[in-house]
């Protein structure tokens, strides 16, 4: 188990999250994939912090988790507002600005 292994694992999870964001139309699953991407970044931070020999990397992960919590709260609020307006969670049908 080396730093490289953990970083590659983080990269794999990030790629899967990216695939989810790009290929799904259900906005809830897009948000879940975003969470995956944030988490994989946190994992990489922790691995590099281990290499640096201080706790700064772990504190960075703490802040990533704080930002992720705020992002989820706002994101889900927007999903609910969108559902009220258009009765859909389809990202392709969020085109109000076109009209």
């Amino acid at each position: 188990m080396t730093v490289g292994h953990v970083v590659v694992l983080a990269g794999t999870l990030f790629t899967i999250g990216m695939l989810g964001v790009l290929s799904r139309r259900n906005i809830l699953i897009v948000l879940l994939s975003l969470e995956l991407m944030l988490n994989s970044a946190a994992l990489a931070f922790c691995a590099f912090g281990d290499m640096a020999g201080n706790l700064d990397g772990q504190i960075m992960v703490f802040f990533v988790i704080v930002v992720a919590a705020a992002e989820v709260a706002i994101g889900l609020a927007i999903v609910i507002a969108l559902f009220r307006l258009r009765v859909t969670v389809d990202t392709d049908r969020v085109d109000l600005l076109k009209q």
Binding site: M1, T2, V3, G4, H5, V6, V7, V8, G11, T12, T15, M18, A47, D50, M51, A52, G53
Partner: peptide
């Protein structure tokens, strides 16, 4: 492609030689 590039970069940076808990 993204993953291949990442593995290549990680290997070039020598991260596979640094074990966890090296400090």
């Amino acid at each position: 492609l993204f993953l291949t590039g990442l593995v290549f970069t990680v290997r070039e940076a020598g991260l596979f030689e640094v074990p966890i808990g090296s400090q």
